[in-house]
Amino acid sequence: MKVALKVNGVQRHVDMAPLARLLDALRGPLGLTGTKEGCGEGECGSCAVFLDGVPVNACLVPIGQCDGCEVVTVEGLAAAGHLAPLQACMAEHGGAQCGICTPGMLIAAEALLRRNPDPTPVEVRTAIAGNLCRCTGYERIVQSVLHAAHELRSTEKGAAE
């Protein structure tokens, strides 16, 4: 099945079995290996990507449903070779260890900050409730997201002044 979709702002085409997963398309023909496969059954969130602006598990989306859709992966969060503040904070504050969960965590956190630029620690934990991490114990991830939120608010405030 021929599918046309926009990936990280670029129009792309794939030709795959309709029930192949969006995850297979991203990591295979589209060459975007930032998105990870953890459990492959919607439990761990490491394959999270934005699909038409909403975070979903790419392992549960058949490519046949993606025609005409817009996808943003972890690669789409960084701009012009620079890490986004959220990514930089994850690296700086110990939110990333082995790294398998990190792309999904970043998508979940990005989705939160787009809607809620000043989240509480509980709101961060709720936002990443579908993302499993076996290294950090989550505390560093939550702190990283809170740092990023603070940084983004400061930047925005600076830009407004």
Partner: peptide, 12 residues
């Protein structure tokens, strides 16, 4: 809806 899966399951 808050207790169904996580946010990525709720989205689908």
């Amino acid at each position: 809806t808050h207790d169904i899966g996580g946010p990525t399951i709720q989205a689908r």
